[in-house]
């Protein structure tokens, strides 16, 4: 019988929900000074991480996070069957080069800042599909590598707008297994690319909010669950501007976002840290998940979590050619069993 684990149009429900057996997070100095500094495994002292370029530092962050997550289960990179990873840089170099050094079978992903959810849901399908027993899902971003690739040279005197977001320096890795103890991935919704014709390169929140709304709506619709089913619905990096828009869009769809809705981009920094709208980047949702959010799940403060990681599929080349900024969002339901 074809596709018996699919429900509705875009959602998969896992028969044997894969287990998040261990995870790790590494963040940059600024994220360490934020409100959740104590919940990350490792806070870097500087942006170079002992390397001679920022790109190499980002690669090392990803590599070390994967090793750290595995070592918590007394595992080595060789013990996992597949590494699913992606990042923001052209040709996903941070992930490719981290995989080169880790020597693991590797599938490179690109979902911009939605990568953590893309990796988790792909991994969960591989495991529940019976193709492997243990995978690692990982992603990372680095403030300076993203700045120089997507915006301006870091020493150029430019003025941020109130909707500008600060790319998080951070990496998160999750070991996902068929057997084990921990929270489980029960279902996932694969997002559509939604483009509402936004073209402001300093405002990713507005470009991504419609995709988040589309995926959340699809998730609740496909599973036919009440809108207060989850203890927390958390989006990836809409930040203040995008979060305000998403709340309006959800109300329009008849879903009540408050009080159990939040956004990693809003949570990760304090207002006083000069980040304008909030945080962004692959590392934003990944670190918040692999730091404070999963910690709260282990403590039982959150039992049902819906992570909706959002990505702005922006390309400077396409933007110069007059293209608008499409958005995508994938939802992963993580529940304590």
């Amino acid at each position: 019988m074809p596709a018996k684990k699919k429900k509705g149009i875009q959602t998969v429900v896992f028969e044997n929900p894969p287990v998040l057996t261990s995870w790790a997070s590494i963040v940059g100095p600024k994220e360490g000074e934020g409100p959740w500094g104590g919940d990350f495994d490792w806070i870097l002292e500087d942006y170079m991480f002992g390397e001679d370029t920022w790109e190499k530092a980002e690669n090392k962050m990803l590599r070390e996070t994967v090793k750290l997550a595995l070592s918590k289960n007394n595992l080595e990179p060789d013990d996992a069957e597949i590494l699913l990873a992606g990042d923001l840089l052209n040709q996903v170099i941070s992930s490719n080069f981290a995989a080169r050094e880790l020597g693991m079978p590797f599938l490179g992903l690109y979902g911009a800042c939605s990568t953590v959810a893309e990796a988790l849901l792909t991994g969960a399908m591989l495991i529940d599909g019976g193709f492997c027993e243990r995978i690692v899902a990982a992603t990372c971003s680095h403030h300076h590598t993203a700045e120089r690739q997507f915006r301006f040279p870091t020493e150029q005197g430019t003025q941020p707008t109130p909707s500008t977001q600060w790319t998080v320096t951070g990496a998160g890795a999750i070991v996902l297994e068929f057997l084990g103890v921990g929270p489980r991935i029960t279902s996932a919704t694969i997002g559509r690319v939604i483009d509402m014709k936004q073209n402001d390169m300093t405002d990713m929140g507005s470009a991504m909010a419609p995709a988040a709304a589309d995926t959340i709506k699809a998730h609740f619709h496909d599973l036919d669950i009440p809108s207060d089913y989850y203890d927390l619905v958390v989006t990836g990096d809409l930040a203040k501007v995008g979060m305000a828009i998403l709340e309006r869009l959800l109300v329009r769809e008849g879903l009540t976002p408050k009080p159990n809705y939040s956004d990693c981009g809003v949570l990760i920094f304090d207002e006083s840290q000069g980040v304008n709208s909030g945080g962004s980047g692959c590392g934003c949702a990944a670190c918040m998940l692999c730091g404070p959010l999963l910690k709260k799940m282990v403590k039982g403060e959150i039992n049902k979590l819906l992570l909706v990681a959002t990505g702005a599929l922006m390309s400077p080349t396409a933007s110069y050619q007059g293209e608008t900024i499409p958005g995508i969002a994938h939802a992963v339901a993580i529940e304590n069993y």
Binding site: Q156, G157, T158, Q159, D200
Partner: peptide, 11 residues
């Protein structure tokens, strides 16, 4: 000019 026009205006 920078504040009033769309922020596609760069330095």
């Amino acid at each position: 000019i920078m504040d009033v026009t769309k922020p596609t205006i760069t330095p």
